[in-house]
Design a protein around this nucleic acid. Structure first.
Length: 576
DNA sequence: GCCGTTTTCGGCCCGACTGTTTTCAGTCG
């Protein structure tokens, strides 16, 4: 189940969308968006809060607090239901298309009766948009490109959504009597950036109670197939989940088989054949006699193939078999290796939690150090000023070391402008412990310009980390067109780290880019880019992505002790 | 709809780009 806070966030975001499509007051729309974000990022469960506590959340006043209460009392909100009655859900989905906002969606619906993405595409191809005010040929092209982007991620969900579903199912099934083991497998276990369907594997002598419990889960919207060995369901959000139940003796072989990837499995089966064996989801067998050799653990299966156990995040047939044969598998960085987070926000800019709340939550994760990196003035909407950032620095210095001994770094997330310049002059930047620099606009510049822009940022002696280097948003915006090798070369030369932004809709750098960057000898930082307390946990996805890029602890600067990190930050400034 | 070096209503996130226009609306971060 979604967190109650997430349910309310989705509800108010939907209401804001509907209000904007119906031409409602823009400030009212913004109020609901702001409240949605604040509630989604709030640390307490809003379903347990009374009116007074609800109104203590920034952006929540009487009207919105009443609607939250109404939602938990009745299961719905009358005002939202009324808005839904006016605008078909398909019209709201149109605004998910990049470059298509509420005004254009409203025009398409009212003038042409278009109420779904499919109808819109058909209308464009039927040239029915020609002559519609505000819609030219370029607009049509942009819409079609946006739809294509949406469909590329089509049916696939982000890691966090898939993991939330998987975690819930595994927790419930593990408690069913007779269940000896239960884990998620598939691309989710390999931490792929998007997930087509969730695979859950369980071990039991009798599968019936597990299959029944699975079918009766509250999140099940539809049972697709129900058998003795396999059951598939679909959630209300459209995510397919497959449960396979195997005998406990076959656990290891099944887990290996259902974890994949397919390419990795092909390689392991070929290895088996060459050794006179046969590998299937039921075990490793002697090819001639059909006698079972091993099947109980993954370790045994790999061992009998002459390999050490291979971490799931490496199982893509990208050289892991060969590395394993040579005994050269990397010792992968893990989430628990992280000693701190180097890219986080507070409510001084676009975060929703206070400095103190963020610091407390970071300390609760056991971090040794933590950097606060709010936006700088060039992001005009954030209204940052020298005075505000210096006042924050005072507060950071006072808090430093007072919460569980955690050390604080005062930093900023600079904006890399169209020519590669950043917000403040060098004299001011030297006052920060750490500067992340990221691109936030001008995404469509040509390859040479973007490359030069990022190289210039890396060459800036005050920039320590390049944030979300390709700026892609999964399913919504492609990466900028850039010569990554050139950027990686510059980062290696200047001692500038590359971020692995852990936000599940970014995961930027992505795994393939990390593999390439590592070859240039670049260092990395696995950061949450948290805008709320619960975002700090995003580093789980960043660490998984780093593993898919074959990174070890030594490659990642925020696994280093503070002293070594400070040396790295200092030497970057000393250069050039 | 929220908020207030607040007290009851006026301001609220600003600037730039894109595409459609020919002076601006819509979208985005």
């Amino acid at each position: 189940m979604a967190r109650p806070n997430d349910e309310v966030e989705d509800l108010f975001q939907e209401y804001a969308d509907l209000l904007s499509i119906t031409g409602g007051d823009a400030f009212k729309v913004r109020s609901y968006e702001k409240a949605a974000r604040a509630i989604g990022g709030h640390h307490e469960d809003v379903s347990t809060l009374d009116a007074k506590a609800l109104r203590a959340i920034p952006g929540v006043g009487k009207s919105i607090a009443d609607k939250v209460a109404e939602y938990f009392a009745t299961g719905s909100v009358r005002a939202v239901e009324e808005a839904r009655a006016k605008i078909p859900d398909g019209v709201r989905r149109l605004v998910a298309i990049p470059t298509l906002g509420p005004k254009k969606a409203a025009a398409l619906y009212h003038d042409l009766g278009i109420s779904s993405v499919d109808e819109l595409v058909a209308a464009i191809h039927g040239e029915r948009l020609r002559g519609l005010k505000g819609f030219g040929l370029r607009t049509e092209e942009n819409i079609l490109r946006g739809v294509e982007l949406l469909r590329q991620s089509g049916g696939r969900v982000l890691l966090d959504a898939a993991l939330a579903v998987a975690d819930e199912i595994v927790a419930v099934l593990s408690a069913v009597p007779g269940c000896e083991r239960c884990e998620h497998a598939g691309s989710l276990r390999r931490f792929r950036e998007t997930i087509g369907d969730v695979d859950v594997l369980a071990a039991a002598h009798d599968s019936a109670p597990l299959m029944r419990a699975f079918r009766e889960l509250p999140l099940v919207a539809e049972v697709i197939v129900a058998g003795e060995k396999k059951t598939s369901i679909r959630t209300a959000e459209g995510l397919q989940v497959d449960l396979r139940v195997v005998p406990p003796s076959a656990w290891g072989a099944a887990l290996q088989y259902f974890t994949g990837s397919q390419a990795h499995n092909v390689r392991t089966r070929v290895l088996a054949v060459h050794a006179g064996l046969k590998l299937s989801e039921y075990g490793l067998f002697d090819a001639a006699s059909g006698e079972l050799i091993v099947s109980e653990t993954e370790d045994e299966v790999y061992d009998r193939l002459g390999l050490p156990w291979i971490p799931p995040t490496l199982r893509e047939d990208r050289g892991e078999i060969e590395a394993a044969q040579r005994g050269e598998l990397p010792e992968l960085v893990t989430e628990t290796d992280l000693l701190g987070d180097l890219h986080t926000h507070t409510d001084l800019t676009d975060g929703v939690a206070s400095l103190e709340d963020m610091v407390r939550a970071a300390a609760a994760r056991g971090y040794a150090y933590y950097a606060i990196t709010d936006h700088a003035p060039d992001m005009a909407m954030q209204r940052m000023s020298d005075e505000k950032i210096l006042a924050q620095r005072e507060r950071v210095r006072k808090l430093d070391g007072t919460v569980a001994g955690m050390r604080l770094l005062h930093g900023t997330e600079l904006n890399i402008g169209p020519d590669g310049e950043v917000d403040w002059p060098e004299s001011f930047l030297r006052g920060f412990d750490l500067c992340v620099a990221s691109i936030h606009s001008h995404f469509t510049q040509d390859r040479a310009t973007i490359t030069r822009r990022l190289v210039r940022a890396a060459e800036n002696p005050c920039v320590h980390v390049i944030g979300h280097p390709t700026t892609r948003l999964i399913g919504r915006r492609g990466p900028v067109d850039v010569d990554l090798a050139e950027v990686f070369r510059a980062c290696a030369r200047t001692g500038t780290a590359l971020e692995i932004n852990s936000a599940p809709d970014r995961l930027d750098l992505r795994d393939e880019d990390i593999l390439l960057a590592k070859r240039f000898g670049v260092r990395f930082a696995i950061n949450s880019d948290a805008h709320a307390v619960h975002h700090l946990g995003f580093v789980r996805y960043g660490a998984g992505t780093a593993q898919r890029g074959w990174l070890t602890k030594d490659d990642v600067i925020n696994t280093w002790p503070l002293e070594r990190l400070r040396e790295f930050l200092g030497s970057a400034q000393a250069q050039q």
